[in-house]
Design a protein around this nucleic acid. Structure first.
Lengths: 113, 113
DNA sequence: CAAACATGCTACAATATCTGTAGCAATACA
DNA sequence: TGTATTGCTACAGATATTGTAGCATGTTTG
């Protein structure tokens, strides 16, 4: 899959608006999960794979390539890890953890009716 | 596609951890873009479609169904719009707009080297 | 009232993407 | 010289997305 790049057309924006480029990247299977998992620290390929619910190595490798290309992940000495930019991105994603909990709680209440 | 539901297995989590359920939902094509576009106010199906870079009606309708089912979008009088929960979710996504700009700027600088 | 539009949406075939399994090459022990 | 572990590729089958066509239901407009 083509690696999205700001300023060039992506799925979602012919003009390559940064937010759409980001959404194209993050909207790919496992991209968000990988970032979330890496936030706890560097991990080897296989550890990461196991933490990501045994995602297939094909996709994991593809996503890691894309995320590296985009400067969000780096392959360091202790394995794959978030770059400074990636860490920064994660701080913006983190609140979603809390939101998702109240959200799922609300859904459950609705279910129980 | 199956609608992800907290507490039940989803792609990314056999246990259905809320954040993974959310990531499953948001990781589908166009989900993030739809939420982003709806944040400016209610829109008809066709307007939304045109704002989403002419996404195919098939996917748009599928995503809208999922987002409605999950309580993020509602089909109101003036068209599709975010629910209170959806608006809340958007406030957490909004900072990504700014992040994506500095990110794409950084990528551009790197390019120019 | 009928013709002309707009809207929400479905059908369907062609593509693209993802999944799951197998397994190879390289390195690190034992 | 085994034996393990790691990072990753190959490949086929399953799923998801795209793109186009077009239908049914209103809503104007002449």
């Amino acid at each position: 899959m083509k690696i999205p790049k700001a300023g060039t057309p992506v799925r979602g924006s012919k003009s390559g608006k940064p937010i759409m480029v980001l959404f194209d990247l993050l909207g790919r299977r496992w991209a968000l999960g990988i970032i979330w998992n890496l936030s706890t620290g560097p991990q080897t390929f296989r550890t990461l794979q196991s933490n990501c619910d045994s995602v297939s190595p094909t996709v994991l490798n593809t996503r890691l390539k894309e995320l590296r290309e985009c400067g969000i992940v780096i392959n360091g000495e202790s394995g794959y890890e978030l770059t400074a930019e990636g860490e920064d991105l994660f701080t913006y994603l983190q609140p979603l953890g809390h939101w998702s909990q109240t959200w799922s709680h609300a859904a459950k209440l609705k279910d129980d009716q």
